[in-house]
């Protein structure tokens, strides 16, 4: 029984058909990696799962609740966001909040926890990513890698059913990618359900339970990492895989 199902997700912006009738599902514990050329709709797709932009058409079925993706109810949106967290390409840490507050904000204002309880959870999360000593630092005082690890801690603190990763390592200097990938590996091993948009093929090969290849707003091909990377069927998939440098 899938945890999340999306049916016929469709979106057009200024005559550009960005998402074309996407059908998608993910079960608990799965790690689905989304690959594809830029502009193929990957980011729009996962942003839609968090209602960060609106679809023109489509339906979501999450934890046995049906939600219309084109005109969701306000309460449903908040409810979904409480259970599906997101990690952004550009970290998007709150600039006016410390590392600790970045993690507690969602716990307090999204989940209604007390400040004490939120602080406790946040300190634990910071410890998990090895950044306890940075708890009072502001984003401007952190390196890219540290920012992204706090971005991940901010998401995991919410104990979400699913975490969406939107190219979490693309903005990082190459030498900082490793620590962030380690955190993601670790999460996957713990059974965290994840949807990851990435160009990191090594991560996809090692961790993914399923790989989706996006092209022109549609899922052109999907399968296990072995199927996609070693025996791709579609010409576009083959071209994409041979064109990208290994682990950019």
């Amino acid at each position: 029984m899938p945890l999340l199902t999306v049916n016929q997700l469709d979106k057009t912006v200024d005559n550009n058909h960005i998402l074309k009738n996407i059908d998608f599902q993910i079960s608990k514990g799965e790690v689905i990696v989304v690959i594809g050329p830029s502009g193929s709709g990957k980011t729009t797709f996962i942003s839609n799962l968090n209602f960060l932009n609106n679809a023109d058409k489509g339906e979501m079925n999450f934890r046995d609740k049906k939600i219309d993706l084109s005109s969701p109810k306000k309460d449903d949106v908040l409810w979904v966001r409480r259970h599906i967290a997101m990690v952004f390409q550009n970290y998007n840490l709150f600039k006016n909040k410390t590392a600790l507050e970045n993690i507690t904000e969602g716990l307090i204002h999204g989940q209604g926890k007390s400040r004490d309880e939120a602080n406790q959870i946040a300190l634990e999360e910071l410890k998990n990513v090895g950044l306890s000593e940075k708890k009072d630092a502001y984003p401007s005082q952190l390196s890219g890698g540290q920012k992204q690890r706090i971005g991940i801690a901010r998401a995991t603190a919410l104990k979400p059913d699913i975490i969406l990763f939107d190219e979490p390592t693309s903005a990082l200097d190459p030498e900082l990618v490793g620590t962030v990938v380690q955190d993601m590996d670790h999460l996957a091993q713990q059974g965290q359900t994840m949807i990851v948009v990435t160009h990191l093929m090594s991560f996809a090969k090692k961790v993914a339970t399923k790989v989706l290849f996006f092209a022109d707003g549609a899922i052109l091909e999907s399968g296990t990492p072995d199927q996609i990377f070693n025996h791709p069927k579609e010409k576009r998939t083959k071209e994409f895989l041979s064109a990208i440098a290994e682990d950019r």
Partner: peptide
Amino acid sequence: GQIKAAYSVGMT
């Protein structure tokens, strides 16, 4: 991005 992040953690 700040606004998106705020929404994504469940803020109204």
